[in-house]
């Protein structure tokens, strides 16, 4: 099995994540889709690490995980606060700012 398939899978996951961001309304789901994109990248990194024969990629994946965790904290805090206000997590409801 060539590593290329992993790359394709990664690209597929990334695309699914991106499309998810576009089509889902719930802020949490949107956020999860973004996480999916990040993890797709992680898959790529590890694959490339394997292809390149260096460990850098794998280490980078760890970094990404840490960063993603921090992002989750911040993101959930923001989403929580707006959910408390609006009693809805739909991103489409926040559109006071426009035009």
């Amino acid at each position: 099995m060539t590593p290329t398939y992993y790359l394709l899978l990664s690209a597929l996951l990334f695309t699914i994540g991106a499309v998810g961001v576009l089509v889902r309304r719930n802020a949490i789901v949107v956020f999860m889709c973004i996480e999916l994109m990040l993890n797709a990248v992680n898959l790529s990194l590890v694959t490339f690490s394997r292809i390149n024969g260096s460990l850098d990629g794998q280490i980078m994946a760890f970094f990404v995980m840490v960063v993603a965790a921090a992002e989750v904290v911040v993101g959930l805090a923001i989403i929580m606060s707006i959910f408390r206000t609006r009693r809805t997590a739909s991103v489409d409801d926040s559109n006071l700012l426009k035009y």
Binding site: V91, S94, N95, K98
Partner: peptide, 11 residues
């Protein structure tokens, strides 16, 4: 008008 205010359209 394209600046609809919907975050998904921005994305």
């Amino acid at each position: 008008r394209l600046q609809t205010g919907f975050v998904r359209s921005y994305a």
